[in-house]
Design a protein around this nucleic acid. Sequence first.
DNA 1: TAATTGACCACTTTGTTCATTTGGTCAATA
DNA 2: TATTGACCAAATGAACAAAGTGGTCAATTA
Lengths: 194, 194
Amino acid sequence: MTVVDRKQLIIDAATKSFSLFGYKATTMDQVSKIANVGKGTIYTFFVNKEELFKEIVGKLIEDMIKKANSTIDPEKSFSENLHYVLYEILQFRRQHQLMIKLIQEEQEMKTPAVSDMLQEIEDAIVSFISENISIAIKKQYIKQCNPELTAFVAFRLYISLISDWEKHHQPLEKEEIADLFELYFIKGLSKENG
Amino acid sequence: MTVVDRKQLIIDAATKSFSLFGYKATTMDQVSKIANVGKGTIYTFFVNKEELFKEIVGKLIEDMIKKANSTIDPEKSFSENLHYVLYEILQFRRQHQLMIKLIQEEQEMKTPAVSDMLQEIEDAIVSFISENISIAIKKQYIKQCNPELTAFVAFRLYISLISDWEKHHQPLEKEEIADLFELYFIKGLSKENG
DNA sequence: TAATTGACCACTTTGTTCATTTGGTCAATA
DNA sequence: TATTGACCAAATGAACAAAGTGGTCAATTA
């Protein structure tokens, strides 16, 4: 056991920098400075910048799925669970921030490493949502529908609300986002419902 | 009454050139040559290149909205009309040569004048949908909601279904899209509805 | 001796220079 | 009076120079 966990120091520093400046604008020198570590040390833990990035994004996906899973309560309704999961994910400032920064970087400079990772994040999230939608359909909590397509649409709705809308308008509060999700996606706009 | 309408000649020439080469790659010299007009003549009708561009894009927006409006059928339901309008707009975006060229130019060189105009086009679309949503709320066809945000989300959701989904999956048929849009956006997934 | 480091290097990105091109003007022209 | 194209200042981009970056490794620590 070492006095300080240098690997964790590096991961924390890199996460901070990626979230703040994005992938391209983060230099390995910078990361080593923030982590109070020699630049070479980074390369004893990670083969290169992209692998360091992958580890962080992988962790982000893992944490998000884990957190979401732990929030799901089989006793509760689908819409309630969706609400809680969404709310929980919106709580993660750091991860949220990194995600927003990456979407931004993807859109305005198309850094290949970033595009790849965002695709990976999307696949993981869509696949997770898809599984849960399948379960909800089986249990007859929601209507029959294509789980993957529905998960895809839900994810896009989420991105629209957290990232795209903010480009030209006041950002939405997390309560607002959760409520809107419920209105547009669960209840629907039809007058006959809820 | 002049023998030839020089202003229209210029507009036609510029439209042709913008559609073929984009905004940046179109020179005023070129436009004057295509229009068979002295370069100076252009400046008796338009203060500068950007204003000429704006006039053409303004016309494009007008045509698009006109087209969208003509698809609205008061006999049909709100959701059907929304679907038709959005479908018509996306078809327009997809088929109109100038639109295609501008989207391409935006993506690969981010010419500011082009970005501005594309934003204006999107704003016009969202604003048009927003107005129709406001009417639908007043007539109590749908629930109370923020019309602008709802229009924005509807537009995004539609693009997701019609364009983004195709990037990694089998394209959806027009009827499928209509059904899905109705399911996700209007009825909602809740079992209690529809 | 195993872990750590930062000077170092090949390569990329960014800044600078300057000839060419382009948007826009206006005196000459029809 | 409407139209024009030679003309000019400003914008552009090609070519080169300077600075910055990812990644390595011999020297240094603990």
